[in-house]
């Protein structure tokens, strides 16, 4: 079980530009989208971290940018890590897929694609999961549906 500082030491060697926000509930790291797959792949393979279980993947719309959030757990060491990647382009958001590393991520990513419209490169089957093809992306903050949602 590693603590924040040990995570920081391991990750800053792999990705020097990673940021480590202080005062968060769980150990957290923010990396550029381009380095995401590389970092996760190495953290999964490293026997000291061995993040083999992806608990959760989602995204958050911050009006100017998107933040994709991944929660990882190691089933051997029982430690948790939150990995985040910032997507600057709010019009045509695009990021890398982790479906090859974590099969469960394929479906989390399809859900995020459905509800946020974030496109994943190298995704095996990027189709909408819940909604029709011509529906908007409801979890975006600028989504409006005048028929079905009553604004308060």
């Amino acid at each position: 079980m590693l603590n924040r500082d040990e995570f920081k030491e391991i990750i800053s060697k792999l990705v020097p530009e990673a940021e480590f926000p202080e005062g968060t509930q769980l150990p957290e790291v923010i990396v550029p989208v381009a380095k995401l797959v590389e970092l996760v792949e190495k953290l999964k393979a490293n026997p000291n971290t061995s993040f083999d279980y992806m608990i959760n993947h989602t995204a958050v719309d911050f009006n100017t940018h998107f933040m994709t959030v991944y929660h990882f757990e190691s089933t051997t060491h029982k430690h948790l890590l939150v990995v985040k990647a910032k997507i600057e382009d709010h019009e045509n958001p695009e990021t890398e897929s982790l479906a090859a590393l974590y099969p469960t991520c394929e479906f989390f990513e399809r859900e995020v694609f459905d509800l946020f419209g974030i496109r994943y490169k190298n995704h095996p089957n990027l189709k909408r999961l819940f909604l029709e093809d011509d529906y908007g992306h409801p979890l975006r903050k600028d989504f409006r549906d005048e028929v079905n949602i009553i604004e308060r």
């Binding site: 968060t24 608990i55 959760n56 929660h71 939150v82």
Partner: peptide, 20 residues
């Protein structure tokens, strides 16, 4: 302001709540 994460064991597995 911040982010909060909580996991519980339901009858079917792990339910995680993530609040921003």
């Amino acid at each position: 302001a911040g982010e909060f994460f909580q996991r519980v064991e339901t009858a079917r597995g792990e339910l995680a709540v993530y609040i921003v």
